[in-house]
Simulated scan of single mutants.
Amino acid sequence: MAAAVAVPPTLSLHQIKAKFRMNKDISSNVEEVLKAQNVSWATRTAIKYSPVSLLVDNHTDDATATEYYVSTQLLPGGIKSEENRVLDNAVHEKVSPVFGPVKGQNGWITVADAAAIHPYLGEGWDNPEDAGLVHAYTEGDATKKKGCEWYSHQVFGFAMVDLGDGKPQRMYISKLWFRAPGLPEGGVTKRLVYDYCPDDE
């Protein structure tokens, strides 16, 4: 396996357009989360055993001044999941091809505000004084067909990660606090770590 490439210090979530690859050696197992979201066995298996790439694109539509944070997950076999998040903190509803009917809101958040939601979400980020994290709150809509009940707070940003060689590297991180019926009271926390892929941009 090729060595992980550190995210350059000049790269921020603002106006980002980059490709990453999930580092499964140091990422959390999210099987219980995906199962609680009624994600199909085939998709869960692909995520567990196949390489997962992620395209991240933050941009603003000049005509409407609307800011978007788009995360596109790519799996072998043509499996693709795109999350087109509008960073306006307004509630949006949609039917996801992976998660079914959902609603949620997205926006920029400080480290302190992330920690206020759940302490785990505020730990270990770069530049804790900056409002440089993206927060996505999503819940499954159990009132609609094929919907189920679950609640997710997800925070995206950069953090220094120890890869086991004593030389921490700056990497793209997604931290999750997830609650759903059948899971432990208080929910579960997960961390997904992504290697930077500069040659694939």
Rank of each mutant, 00 (worst) to 15 (best):
S50Y: 01
I26E: 06
L54D: 02
E67I: 07
K35P: 00
T72M: 03
H59C: 03
T72P: 00
D57A: 02
A36V: 01
N38S: 11
E32I: 11
K35S: 14
V52C: 07
T60Y: 07
Y68S: 07
V52I: 13
E32R: 13
A36I: 02
T72R: 14
S53I: 00
G78F: 08
A42S: 13
Q37W: 02
D57K: 10
K35M: 08
L34K: 03
N29A: 03
A63T: 10
D61L: 09
E31G: 02
S50I: 00
S27F: 06
I47F: 05
L55I: 12
G77M: 05
D57V: 08
A42R: 03
E67S: 13
N38H: 15
T66P: 11
S53Y: 12
L74E: 13
W41T: 10
A42G: 00
V39N: 03
Y69T: 00
T66R: 12
Y68V: 01
P76C: 03
S71R: 03
A42N: 04
E32L: 10
D25F: 09
D25S: 13
G77F: 04
T60W: 10
N58R: 14
A63W: 09
A65H: 15
D61Q: 12
Y49F: 15
A63K: 14
D62W: 10
A36L: 06
I47L: 09
I79W: 00
A63S: 15
K48T: 12
V33D: 11
A36R: 10
D57T: 08
I79R: 14
S71F: 00
L34D: 13
I47D: 00
V56L: 02
S71P: 00
I79T: 12
G78M: 06
D25H: 11
S27D: 04
I79K: 13
T43L: 13
D61M: 06
S27K: 12
L34A: 08
A46N: 05
L34M: 14
K48E: 12
A36G: 06
G78Y: 09
N58S: 15
T60E: 15
S50R: 02
I79G: 00
V33K: 13
S28A: 11
T45D: 05
V39R: 02
L55T: 12
L74W: 10
A65R: 14
E32P: 06
A65D: 14
N38E: 07
N58Y: 07
N38Y: 11
T64F: 07
A46T: 13
E67P: 10
D62F: 03
S50T: 12
L54Y: 10
Y49S: 04
R44T: 07
L34F: 14
V30N: 08
A65Q: 15
V70F: 01
